[in-house]
Design a protein around this nucleic acid. Structure first.
Length: 420
DNA sequence: TCTGGGGTCCTAGGACCC
DNA sequence: TCTGGGGTCCTAGGACCC
């Protein structure tokens, strides 16, 4: 029988902020999305106030004031660095590890000798000592059950952060206690559809007939049902699958109403996406551009649209991608609207050195282009100069309002925490 | 007034092939 | 009145995840 452990950091972004601010350890802390728009991470104290994940900040201003909630803008660089430390520390416990998200990893515990609960406690203690981040551990024979176990480890204080669900009787008991919507793979749509069939708990879902589920729903939900019954259908994915798409999109800090400004904002995003491609040594074969107004805006009709085009030969050269994107932009642009968001999506990704050359491919041009882009990336990364295309206007900052940003504790010599 | 960003997978249907 | 069988590929849309 396989055995998975799911390690999930508690309130990860909040824990990262608290790591360098021990004075906040017992205070309510929340981290906000880009533009300080929505709450995306909540400390236990904030969850206890009934503030849901994704709540817009403006709706809870009164609670922030009343309970003196400490707010932070997202500091993605910090979270990425702390995540890397968490994953590195976890590798001590198993050679087989899948980084599932920025704050979660599955490890293979099939060969674990010690008793599983103490193994889980050892993981918790080491991560707290080495990294300083509190985690919860769920152990079970399938990933879906391990997710459930992890949820229980967080919910029930008497579990001390670890739930071992290797025994079928315990699985059944927890399934009966778990609402349907908390099952991994059951979201906003499936929940109500299943509820209409009288399914309300994870146990009821587990007891459904798999053929019926397959027929009425999908193979995805069928796998969930099987996994809830202890039949492992999802393997540990130690080697991440190659990325299939790359998206750079932003909600604008302020609405954009003019052609020039929107064009510049999108140019900025396209160049950013191209730089990310180059950084990852990838090329893209399809470019899609999209813009939209705010769906919450009652003053104007909603407008959202996208357009895409294929490249003759996959590329990561900004000089190729940008003009294509700008042609798409002209197809999408409509006058007299207040635009709230836009972005670019790159697909047909392949390793930069495995591109099928186009009919008129010129190795000389390709070599020069590559050197030019390298020079451009080096300059822009150095922080000493900025090189950009005429269509861009990088000094304009349409995007981030990040007024509550914490220091770059892990990335800048000038912002290292000071200890006295 | 103010509502995030970045991903994956599956399915159905259409176009096309021999 | 009767109108084959077996495929692939692509896209859009829907659903899910963190």
């Amino acid at each position: 029988m396989p055995l998975f452990a799911l390690i999930d950091c508690n309130n990860f972004y909040c824990s990262c902020e608290r790591l360098f601010r021990p004075d906040l350890r017992r205070r309510p802390v929340a981290v906000l999305s880009n533009n300080d728009g929505c709450v995306v991470a909540r400390s236990a104290e904030v969850k206890a106030l009934g503030i849901a994940m994704g709540t817009p900040l403006f709706q809870i201003r009164h609670l922030v004031k009343q309970h003196d909630i400490v707010l932070f803008s997202s500091n993605y660089g910090l979270y990425a660095d702390i995540s890397a430390r968490v994953m590195a520390s976890l590798r001590a416990f198993s050679d087989h590890l899948e980084v599932y998200s920025i704050d979660e990893a599955f490890i293979d515990l099939t060969a674990a000798q010690a008793d599983l609960a103490s193994c889980g406690q050892a993981i918790r203690e080491q991560l707290y000592r080495h990294v300083g981040v509190p985690v919860s551990v769920g152990i079970a024979p399938t990933k879906t059950l391990a997710k459930l176990a992890n949820g229980a480890a967080k919910r029930f204080r008497q579990c001390h952060g670890v739930v071992d669900l290797s025994q079928p009787e315990r699985q059944r008991r927890l399934l009966a206690l778990t609402p349907l919507e908390e099952v991994w793979g059951v979201g906003r749509q499936l929940g109500p559809r299943l509820a209409r069939l009288g399914i309300r708990t994870a146990l009821q879902l587990a007891e459904m007939d798999v053929r019926f589920v397959r027929q009425r729903f999908s193979v995805v939900l069928e796998r969930t049902v099987r996994e809830l019954n202890g039949e492992s259908c999802l393997e540990l994915e130690e080697v991440p699958a190659p990325q299939k798409q790359l998206v750079c999109s932003r909600s604008f800090g302020e609405r954009i109403e003019t052609y020039d400004e929107l064009r510049q904002a999108l140019s900025q995003l396209v160049c950013q996406a191209a730089a990310r491609l180059r950084h990852q040594a990838l090329k893209a074969g399809i470019v899609t551009l999209f813009i939209r107004t705010s769906p919450h805006d009652t003053q104007q009709p909603y407008y959202g649209n996208r357009a895409s085009t294929s490249l003759g030969e996959a590329s990561n050269d900004s000089r190729v991608l940008l003009p294509l994107a700008l042609r798409l932009f002209d197809k999408l642009w409509r006058e007299d609207l207040r635009y709230a968001k836009g972005g670019v999506q790159l697909e047909g990704l392949c390793p930069a050195d495995q591109v099928q050359p186009g009919l008129f491919h010129s190795p000389q041009d390709e070599g020069k282009g590559k050197q030019l882009m390298q020079a451009l990336d080096r300059l822009n990364q150095s922080g000493r100069a900025r090189v950009y295309f005429g269509a861009q206007r990088p000094e304009a900052d349409w995007f981030m309002t990040r007024t509550l940003l914490s220091p770059a504790y892990t990335r800048s010599w000038d912002e290292l925490p000071q200890v006295r």
